[in-house]
Amino acid sequence: MLYYIYDGTFDGLLTAIYDAYYEKDSPEQIVPLNNFVDNFLIRRIYIQADAEKSRKVHDAIINKISKDAMTNIMYAYLSEHENAGIFILDYLRFGFKVGKIADSYLSDDRVYNIRRLVTKITREKQLLAGIIRFRLLQNNIYYAPIETQYNTACLLGDHFADRMADQVFVIHDVKRNYGVFYDKTKWFMSDIELNADVVFHEKELFYQELWKQYFESITIKDRINPKLQSNFMPKKYWKYLIEMK
């Protein structure tokens, strides 16, 4: 059993794809270092992320398959699924073989496996665009802590920078310890080490109360249907929702 172990970055993953293509010995799994569970049957090759190799793979995907294929493998990578690495390799091998029509093979496992992951990421991304809640802090930063199932926070930068263009904000992925920061001109990602309590702006709790009141009175009591509610908005996302506390 041969495992490729990469550093966890997207560049690292693309480098692994590159190596898998040019080495004779094909990997059975491609896993990030932090997710690697060792056992004595496993032969391993550590992949050194290489910007040049990564760029070549990136260009080849776009030229020989499609832009969509590039998005697909990025989303699959963000799913952090245990088989994401090898699914991506299989998908790309197939893609390089059949070209830009690859995604029409909807029922082929090599495409199906990726598509399933992409659907999950897309759904969570759309849900998050709605249910992220900013809290205004004393220092006039709008701060939104979230815990997501997949690594989707990084996909929301453009969306919020477009609409909240004139406010400084941070979306904090609490599980993965990083944040999407926006400073009124551009957005960027950075690690977060939270070492002090967040202090709310004096008006913050007032608006939270108003929102909770709105949430309560907009409900039609004759139609209460908690199952429908949690179908749309699964309980695992309730922790940081002001109205669900």
Binding site: D166, T219, L228, L241
Partner: peptide, 25 residues
């Protein structure tokens, strides 16, 4: 959105919450 403004519409629409009656807010 316009320069210095706030807000940007999403053509597909976005639900921000779901009330206990299951209706989207």
């Amino acid at each position: 959105n316009k320069k210095g403004g706030i807000g940007n519409a999403a053509p597909s629409g976005i639900c921000h919450s779901w009330a206990p009656d299951g209706r989207c807010i």
